[in-house]
């Protein structure tokens, strides 16, 4: 049942099958366990393991791993504090923003490793099901991130200026124009959910599909290499964009309405 397949070879023999829905490996208590979910769990294990080593016993004079994380975390923390103009707010939202970045980045990069998409099992219908699959090519995962970001932004707004004032940004009867603008604001607020989730999904799904097409149409030996390098870059950029947009939307939400 367990098998390794060559993606390029499979593509050549079976044609390209591009599937939007995630591969379901099995069911546990009625919950579908997808290949993307397994990859997310792998990502979490890797991140927690690295975090454990990097932050185990921080020293006054840091080692290499500690220095790297000090530069990354310290730099991001300072930037967050600068944007939010408050150390207190930075302390509150930094863990969420940093986790969004690290989670998406690691997830995307793990999705590009060899073995992901090509190690899998054959199901009862003799169909190949990969065990690991780039997580951001599954809309469930990206919607999950989008909801986390959305809730964080709204909660930040409510905590900063209060429920009524914050709601007043969207629904107000000060003037007809104010009312219309409020409704537009509300729609754009909700549209973020979609833009957040589809941007990440679209980029990673497109990258995956592009690699598949290149392997199918052109030579599967050399051409995919620069494309894979490019996909690593895309994986970073998408993680960066997701995190930085969350930060800026938090900043917007915490501002007093004019």
């Amino acid at each position: 049942m367990f098998s390794l397949i060559n993606t390029a070879y499979a593509a050549e023999t079976g044609g390209i099958s591009v599937k939007l829905a995630p591969y379901i490996v099995g069911y546990v208590g009625g919950i579908p366990i997808t290949a993307t979910l397994l990859t997310v769990w792998l990502t979490m294990i890797v991140l927690v393991a690295v975090a454990h080593f990097a932050g185990k016993s921080p020293k006054m004079v840091p080692g290499k791993l500690q220095s790297m994380f000090e530069v990354l975390l310290g730099g991001v923390f300072d930037y967050v504090a600068e944007v939010l103009e408050s150390k207190k707010l930075a302390k509150r939202y930094f863990p969420i923003i940093m986790t969004i970045f690290l989670f998406i980045l690691t997830m995307n990069w793990i999705g590009l490793l060899p073995g992901v998409t090509s190690i899998g099992i054959y199901n009862a219908y003799d169909k190949f099901i990969p065990l690991l699959y780039p997580p951001a090519s599954d809309l469930n995962i990206t919607i999950g991130f989008a909801i986390v970001a959305f809730v964080t932004i709204e909660v930040a707004g409510v905590l900063a200026i209060g429920v009524w004032k914050y709601a007043g940004k969207f629904i107000n009867f000060k003037s007809p124009l104010g009312f219309v603008i409020g409704i537009i604001e509300l729609l754009s607020e909700l549209a973020r959910l979609i833009s957040f989730s589809f941007r990440l999904f679209g980029n990673i799904f497109a990258g995956k599909t592009l690699l598949l097409v290149v392997m199918f149409l052109a030579t599967p030996y050399l051409l995919p290499i620069p494309l894979i390098a490019y996909e690593f870059f895309v994986g970073f950029i998408q993680a960066f964009i997701f995190a930085i947009l969350t930060l800026y939307f938090i900043k917007l939400a915490t501002e007093e309405p004019h």
Binding site: P32, V48, F94, M98, D138
Partner: peptide, 30 residues
């Protein structure tokens, strides 16, 4: 292939990871 159960699991995943990273990484390093 949208499934609310999967979305909820992913949100839980995020919360768990954010908690773990805060405990293991952010707090000690910062």
């Amino acid at each position: 292939g949208i499934d609310t159960k999967l979305i909820i699991i992913q949100i839980i995943n995020f919360v768990v990871l954010a908690g773990a990273l805060s405990y293991f990484l952010y707090k000690p390093v910062l």
